[in-house]
Design a protein around this nucleic acid. Structure first.
Length: 577
DNA sequence: GCCGTTTTCGGCCCGACTGTTTTCAGTCG
């Protein structure tokens, strides 16, 4: 059982215990443990084998034993027993806004409600409003929640959340009196998915801003409105035509509180906890309004002042996950994170020759418009017929066309590549003579996804060791919120890449973001070079590279860890092309 | 269930908001 599965089970146990009414601290210990495991920077099986689980903060004796059992045997009787005991409907009920473990437990124990259907019936009959601690407002809120249940409470991709957030910002930014405004939360930390939007505004007067916020177009429901905080459910249609529905919170504070509130609402929760703990250790108190000691409040003009007041260098939002950033900020060993302007070009892009929507020429111009000095073209290979993969003849023709274009282009070099399918046995989709005519090869898995972990690992290892393979495309094949990663021993893949010098792609398509940031940290530790590729299928798609930079930053990567920060000449020299 | 420069017990971050209450519990982030 791998890292993600173990973390998911620990989190589920936490939820079960919560529904059973166990101590919140015990519950929290399981959720903490789940987080610690999911953010583990090494291979879990190795840590278990070497008996180092207990050295992970948050993992004590009990969790150590349970995790060991999960990893070695794949099962855990304690978990199975809980799962059998707690009706799955109770877990679903937790997703309804305003329903927490206590209320769900009460509904179950007094009215025998254990499914969403029974909950709806009990609300419609008025039985819920009669319960102690409940009332008519709670009952109608539950009914409303049931209608939106399919749409809300689900995480959405970063690009979707960002788009909705942008709409809210545009909608309120011209209200008079606004001094500072920021999108906080996981969007500011650039997490790959978000479950809500946190907006923060400083202003002289909160009322008019709140009023505008709750009446913005797209607001389906106002779930809360107080003097400093309002919550809404908002829906917006993406340019692609899909609709996104999300919870959004707005907080309005006085401008002198803004830096503290910005830090507080940016999170993560764990980072915030660690910061407050640090403040306490220094005889100070930190909350969303101030940093204060015996002598009173310590003035801070911005977040940098706040960190400095606690003896820390400025910690960029992407690193605020309580995975060692406080220690690094204290020791002056924080990385100098890569920035979008460090990227000089990208290598994994498609044209109309396979399944892209723009021609070679159009892609080249778009790359120049982004300020890049090179662009790699890597259309699909012959086996991927669904994506109009290129036959050897068509690839040869494309190579010639690129040569012609290169003689014409000024200030941009096109590199000749291909996204070559890694076939089921790990061999490549073109023969070596043809591959030799290319500047580079992106090797990717697209077909035969359901093989065993062992087979998939051997398949990818064989490709990585192929001398013509320059980089591995989307290493795990995941599609965020849609398809899990195929089973593969990433540790073995990264170690092989370190040996052969094969680059590992950070696929910047917001549907993928694959490699994941946690694995970026591991890659960095092993000395593997990464390459940020937008996997663009249109000229607009090229701009997605910035999501890849986000992933790299969350993975503590500096400029020198990312291959495409090199100039066109440096790339050409290394590839001898 | 975890943890320890208050170290093997007694803590565990903290504030806003809501709906139910007559002073607070539950939920949320």
């Amino acid at each position: 059982m791998d890292r993600e599965q173990v973390a998911a089970i620990l989190a589920e146990i936490g939820t079960f215990l919560e529904l059973r009414g166990e101590s919140p601290f015990r519950v929290n210990a399981y959720h903490n443990g789940a987080r610690a495991i999911s953010q583990l920077e090494e291979d879990l099986a190795t840590v278990v084998r070497e008996g180092r689980l207990s050295s992970i903060p948050g993992i004590g004796e009990t969790l150590r034993d349970k995790i060991t059992m999960l990893v070695t045997t794949g099962t855990l009787p304690f978990y199975d027993k809980l799962k059998a005991e707690i009706p799955p409907g109770l877990v679903e009920m937790l997703r309804i806004p305003g329903l927490g473990p206590k209320k769900v437990k009460a509904l179950h124990e007094s009215l025998g409600i254990d499914t969403l259907d029974k909950l709806r019936q009990a609300c419609e009959s008025g039985a819920v409003a009669q319960l102690k601690g409940f009332g008519s407002k709670t009952q109608s809120k539950i009914l409303e929640g049931l209608t939106f249940l399919d749409e809300i409470g689900n995480r959405v991709r970063l690009d979707q959340a960002e788009y909705v957030a942008q709409g809210l910002v545009e909608g309120i930014k011209d209200v008079p009196g606004i001094q500072r405004m920021a999108v906080c939360g996981s969007i500011r930390r650039r997490r790959e998915t978000a479950k809500d939007i946190d907006l923060l505004v400083s202003a002289t007067e909160a009322g008019p801003i709140m009023q505008r916020f709750v009446s913005l177009p797209g607001v389906l429901q106002v779930t809360g409105q107080g003097p400093t905080k309002s919550s809404v459910i908002v829906r917006r249609t993406m340019p692609s035509g899909s609709t996104v529905t999300l919870n959004a919170d707005l907080r309005v504070v006085e401008d002198r509180h803004f830096p503290f509130a910005l830090h507080y609402f940016t999170g993560s929760k764990e980072h915030g906890k660690a910061m407050r703990l640090r403040a306490i250790q220094r005889g100070l108190k930190l909350n969303e309004y101030e940093l204060a000691g015996e002598a009173g409040s310590i003035p801070c003009a911005d977040e940098a002042d706040l960190f400095q007041a606690l003896g820390l260098a400025y910690i960029p939002p992407e690193l605020r996950e309580d995975t060692g950033e406080l220690l690094a900020a204290e020791n002056g060993t924080l990385p100098t994170l890569i920035e979008t302007r460090d990227i000089c070009g990208v290598f994994h892009n498609h044209t109309t020759a396979s399944d892209g929507t723009a021609s070679l020429d159009e892609m080249a111009r778009a790359a120049q418009a982004l300020g890049w000095t090179y662009l790699g073209i890597a259309d699909h290979s012959q086996t991927l017929s669904v994506a109009n993969g290129l036959s050897p003849q068509r690839l040869l023709a494309q190579i010639e066309e690129i040569d012609r274009l290169n003689r014409k282009l000024d200030g941009l070099r096109l590199f000749k590549g291909s996204e070559v399918d890694i076939l089921a046995d790990g061999s490549l989709d073109y023969d070596d003579d043809l591959l030799a005519k290319l500047d580079y090869v992106v090797a990717s898995v697209h077909l035969h996804l359901n093989m065993s972990r062992e087979q998939m690992t051997q398949r990818i290892l064989r490709a990585i060791r192929h001398p013509k393979v320059t980089m591995l495309g989307h290493a795990t094949g995941r599609l965020l919120l849609r398809r899990d990663a195929y089973p593969v021993d990433l540790e073995a893949v990264l170690q092989a890449a370190a040996e052969t010098g094969t680059l590992i792609e950070i696929n910047a398509d917001p549907h993928r973001l694959d490699l994941d940031w946690t694995h970026c940290k591991r890659a960095r530790a092993l000395g593997v070079q990464l390459v940020i590729n937008p996997d663009a299928h249109s000229t607009a798609g090229l701009a997605n590279y910035r999501y890849g930079v986000d992933v790299a930053r969350r993975g503590w990567l500096e400029r020198q860890h990312v291959f495409n920060t090199l100039s066109a000449d440096e790339v050409a020299r290394l590839w001898k092309v």
